[in-house]
Write a protein that binds this DNA or RNA. Structure first.
Lengths: 218, 218
DNA sequence: TAGATTGTTAATCGATTAACAATC
DNA sequence: TAGATTGTTAATCGATTAACAATC
């Protein structure tokens, strides 16, 4: 099944999008699809789709195409979405609160255990179904519950010190919303960055340079 | 100054990160930097840095390096950060509220005018310094204020219909947080996607496949 | 002038696309 | 069997890296 050797980040970043489209097809009752049809729907090339899937093994059948439900299940397994990784969120500001209460962690493979904040006044509040703790309680909480992932919704200036505390507590996986490049100072940790400010500036560039438009990204 | 022809999206996505590092260097009082030094700090190659900057013109001086303040100003201009593009935000749920009150639109080149929501109960509320309006007021508001950009913090199911309304109102630039691929159905519009669910799944993959780690991204 | 470092061309590397044999 | 479509190899394209002449 998985031949999975050295799959490039470009392929991995396309997997969630395949997963979304396959989920939609499944909901609509479509049971098989060819790389050609999927390419039309997703605005990709059929070649790329076949190459991508073949990084992980042959999920299709010659002359037929791909079974939607089976392919979706394979991708779900590859992404590790059944894992339910125990997760904590750091920073109960606007952004942290929005994520804790709004995001569908379960279907993304994560299980939110608790929120932490510097501000003692927030202690005991419940956000998105979990309690807010003080940051000083991190070591004790981690010893007890052994979370694997931390979501960072804190200012860039606070990030370095929090990350080193979290690493000492055994956490090496980060979903990072702060404008601090964790991987530069802490090589070896796993970081997925969402730099909202950078994204906004990229949009600003595209709008300001419509005379030289850029290829659409999906 | 700008030779700016056909700059690839890969280069553009690095510009905000250059801007961040140059801002920090400037704050620390550093007035010149070589591509070699900057490469060490940012974990890039000196070659890539020089190639990137030369897409837009020669900002450096042989034998000396780059003037930090001047280079930062050039990048700011290239990104269009002085523009202050008039912007509206659609969707006053958790995410929309967090962005309206938390994000620094000004320094990202945007000027937030108003928030819109389907729910009439929210009408008149003030979030992040601007008023919440009903979605039905969109056409009138747009005729009067001519916003150029819409930030979409709405469910995927609502997006198609809202986007066609917005396009009729003259808005063709979108910062899209919904899991709906705008550019597929509305070719020609400018879209910057932030697919948080996709990002979460990518992190899930990386954690689930630590045996085959992926090159760090900054 | 000598040393440093850019701007730019050439070489390499990797990712995407095209082609086609295998096979359902 | 004939038609369709995959899996996979080969060709192309683009982006990154290396090299070096220009020049401050």
């Amino acid at each position: 099944m998985s031949k999975n050797q050295n799959v490039s980040i470009a392929v991995i970043r396309r997997l969630p999008r395949y997963y979304r489209y396959l989920s939609e097809l499944l909901d609509r009752g479509v049971d098989k699809i060819s790389s050609k049809n999927l390419a039309e729907i997703m605005h990709l090339t059929a070649s790329q789709i076949r190459q991508d899937f073949n990084c992980f093994g042959g999920f299709g059948q010659q002359g037929y195409g791909y079974n939607v439900a089976a392919l979706r299940a394979e991708i779900k397994a590859i992404l590790g979405l059944e894992n339910q990784l125990d997760t904590i969120l750091i920073g109960a500001g606007n952004l942290g609160r929005a994520f804790a209460s709004h995001l569908d962690f379960k279907s993304g493979g994560f299980n939110l255990l608790a929120v932490f904040d510097q501000n003692p006044a927030l202690e005991g509040q419940v956000i998105g179904g979990v309690k807010v703790h003080r940051e000083t309680q991190l070591p004790e909480f981690c010893r007890e519950h052994k979370p694997k992932v931390a979501i960072l919704c804190i200012p860039a200036t606070a990030t370095e010190s929090i990350v080193s505390t979290l690493i000492e507590c055994g956490i090496t996986n980060f979903w990072n919303f702060s404008h601090y490049d964790i991987a530069v100072r802490f090589p070896g940790v796993t970081v997925e960055n969402v730099h909202l400010g950078d994204s906004l500036m990229t949009l600003c560039y595209q709008i300001s340079n419509k005379d030289h438009p850029v290829e659409a990204e999906y």
